[in-house]
Every structure is written in C-alpha cells, then in structure tokens.
Simulated scan of single mutants.
Amino acid sequence: MEGDILSSYHGTYRYYAASTMKLAVALTVLHAVDDGRLALDDVIPATHRYPSAAGGSFRFDEEDSDPLFPAEGDPISVRELLESMIERSCNESTNMLMDMVGIEAIHEMCARCGLHDMHVDRLIGDVAAARATGISNEVTSDDLSWLTVQAVRGDYLADASTELLRNALRQQRYPVIADVLPELGKQNVDWGSKSGWVDGIRHDVAFLGDPDDPHSLVLCVLSSGIEDEAAIAAEHAIAAGLLEPLLRS
C-alpha cells in the first residue's frame, strides 16, 4: 500500500464526518496503548452519559444507542470498546474512548498523519454543542483516504495494534463499498472498512487487498443531501465502476 492518489473528485470538499471520525479515534487510542498510557485489558465501568462541550451532559436517544452496549456501571475493557466502535460503530464506546485520550490527542494524531481538513472537535451525539457553538466533526475524501492508508499500513502503530485495527475493520457490519465485490467476482479480496451515516449523509472508506501489498487500494466515497437508499445505490455504482478495472486480474 503505497499511498499515491490515483484519482480524486472534490477531494477537499468538507462533509460532516458522521462515524468515519471513529477511525481517527481508534488510531489515537492504539497509539496510546503502544506508548503505555492505556492497556487493552484495562477495564472501566460503562456509562451512557457524556459531557457536552456546551456544558451539562447528554445521553443517546434509543435510535442512536447500541443495544449490545453494557448497562450503566457494568465492566468493559478498552479492547471491547475499540472493537465495538469499529465493528458495529458503537457511539457509546466512541465517547468513552474519546474521554480517555482527550480531543487534543486526536487533533495531534490528525496533524501527525498530515491531514489538512479533517477535524474532530466534539463527542458523537453532542447536539447541544453543535447548536450552541457550531462545533462539528468534518472530513474530506482526500484526508479520510490518507488516514486509512496510514492506519492500516501501520505507520504509527506497533504490529500487534495494526493487526487489531485491520481485523476490526474487516469485521465491519455496515459495509457499502465491499458490497460490490461479489458482483465483480472478487469475493476473496481482503477488505475492511469504516462507514458512517446520519440523515442525508452516507460515507464509506475501505481498503481492498492485503494492506502489506503495495498494490492494494483504498477507496473513499462520501455523499450528502441524498436519501439513504439513493445514496447507497449511487455509492455501489461508483465503487463498482472504479473497482472493476482496478481489480481485474
């Protein structure tokens, strides 16, 4: 995985990041693990309430909650938080991990990765902060692609942490790009991804092929202002059209 940009369309246009920002959180957490500031086996009590950047606290509505997340006060490990954040896009896990490492550490990781426009400035679901101050989390396709390349290539992580992150991405429960692989006859292609969505927003970024192979690929498709089913259909068409010649053996 070399990191050269083959093609980019509106690559610096900023979108609301939705859950794609969880990849930056995961990279920051694993960097802290490698530095000895956290341990994957550390166990802490689960919580469903989080501090708002606008003051006070909030908890998720039922539709944004993870039904598999432990009850208030039950034990959960850093490893479980990280894996559930990536595999099933658990919002509760994300906010707990962000509280552990701090938003400034996520800023530092984005800067270390050379990202120009992606920024993570508030917890997932902090609607009060978004309304009161305009604080948001934003991403571009160029930055998200480059972040993914560096994350799965292991530029800033120990080998064990890199493999943990790769495997979590491989267990993604809400793929978009990888859904087109069977129709291309590429069911056996190694892949992993991180998707994200809210009303009017649908994103996915995926690695395709062995990340240790310099010829493996990262594809990122971001959309806004489109109904969910139409957005998924469009992203499937884009992914299939781009990947068919690139994956042709």
Results as ranks from 00 to 15, higher is better:
231 A>D: 01
4 D>H: 14
32 A>R: 00
32 A>M: 07
78 V>W: 00
153 R>Y: 07
228 D>E: 14
210 D>C: 01
19 S>I: 02
2 E>T: 15
34 D>M: 02
31 H>C: 08
68 L>T: 08
127 V>Q: 14
10 H>I: 04
144 L>E: 10
38 L>W: 01
203 H>W: 12
210 D>P: 00
236 H>N: 15
134 G>V: 03
57 S>W: 07
126 D>Y: 05
95 N>L: 02
135 I>G: 05
61 D>I: 09
214 P>R: 13
147 L>W: 06
7 S>C: 10
166 R>P: 10
178 A>G: 14
184 L>C: 00
106 I>E: 01
68 L>A: 11
194 K>V: 02
124 I>R: 11
87 E>G: 05
44 I>E: 06
233 A>H: 13
226 I>C: 08
141 S>I: 05
217 L>E: 08
65 S>E: 10
99 D>N: 06
32 A>N: 00
230 A>Q: 15
236 H>S: 02
69 F>I: 01
6 L>R: 14
54 A>T: 09
103 I>W: 02
141 S>L: 02
203 H>Y: 09
187 Q>Y: 01
210 D>H: 09
129 A>G: 14
226 I>P: 01
182 P>K: 12
152 V>L: 03
13 Y>K: 08
147 L>E: 01
112 R>Q: 12
83 E>A: 07
201 I>G: 14
246 L>R: 07
84 S>M: 10
3 G>C: 04
159 D>K: 13
129 A>T: 12
111 A>W: 04
56 G>C: 03
222 L>Y: 11
110 C>Y: 00
186 K>T: 11
220 C>V: 08
26 A>F: 02
125 G>C: 03
234 A>K: 13
231 A>T: 08
6 L>Q: 15
200 G>E: 07
228 D>H: 14
66 D>V: 03
10 H>K: 09
155 D>A: 14
92 E>Y: 00
72 E>L: 06
82 L>W: 00
64 D>A: 13
60 F>V: 03
102 G>M: 06
101 V>N: 02
174 Y>N: 10
64 D>K: 14
